[in-house]
Amino acid sequence: MADVSADQLSPAARPGVITLARHGEPALSRKVRLNAPEYGDWWARYEVGGLKEGQVPPPGLLELAKSADVIIASTRPRSIETARAVVGDRAFATDPTFIEAPLPPPPWPLWIRMSPKRLGFFARFWWWFFDNHGGQETRKAAEARADQAADLLIELSDSGQDVLVLAHGFFNWMIANALKKRGLSKLTDQGHGYWSIKRFRRA
Score class of each variant (00 low, 15 high):
residue 2 A to W: 01
residue 7 D to K: 11
residue 12 A to Q: 15
residue 14 R to E: 13
residue 20 L to E: 12
residue 22 R to M: 04
residue 33 R to C: 13
residue 38 E to D: 12
residue 44 A to R: 14
residue 46 Y to N: 02
residue 52 K to S: 11
residue 52 K to H: 14
residue 55 Q to F: 13
residue 56 V to N: 14
residue 61 L to N: 13
residue 68 A to S: 13
residue 71 I to M: 14
residue 73 A to L: 04
residue 73 A to D: 03
residue 74 S to M: 11
residue 78 R to Q: 02
residue 78 R to G: 03
residue 85 A to Q: 11
residue 85 A to V: 06
residue 87 V to K: 12
residue 87 V to Y: 15
residue 89 D to F: 05
residue 91 A to G: 12
residue 92 F to I: 05
residue 98 F to T: 02
residue 100 E to S: 01
residue 104 P to L: 15
residue 105 P to N: 12
residue 109 P to R: 09
residue 109 P to K: 15
residue 114 M to Q: 15
residue 114 M to Y: 11
residue 115 S to Q: 15
residue 115 S to G: 10
residue 117 K to I: 09
residue 126 W to K: 02
residue 132 N to M: 00
residue 132 N to D: 04
residue 137 E to W: 05
residue 139 R to A: 10
residue 141 A to I: 10
residue 141 A to W: 09
residue 144 A to M: 06
residue 144 A to F: 00
residue 144 A to G: 06
residue 152 L to N: 08
residue 154 I to R: 04
residue 159 S to M: 13
residue 159 S to I: 04
residue 164 L to M: 11
residue 165 V to G: 00
residue 169 G to P: 00
residue 169 G to C: 01
residue 172 N to G: 06
residue 174 M to P: 00
residue 175 I to L: 00
residue 175 I to Q: 00
residue 177 N to Q: 12
residue 178 A to P: 00
residue 179 L to G: 06
residue 182 R to E: 07
residue 183 G to L: 13
residue 189 D to L: 08
residue 189 D to N: 09
residue 191 G to Q: 06
residue 191 G to A: 09
residue 195 W to Q: 02
residue 196 S to V: 05
residue 196 S to Y: 06
residue 198 K to N: 10
residue 199 R to Q: 14
residue 199 R to G: 02
residue 200 F to S: 00
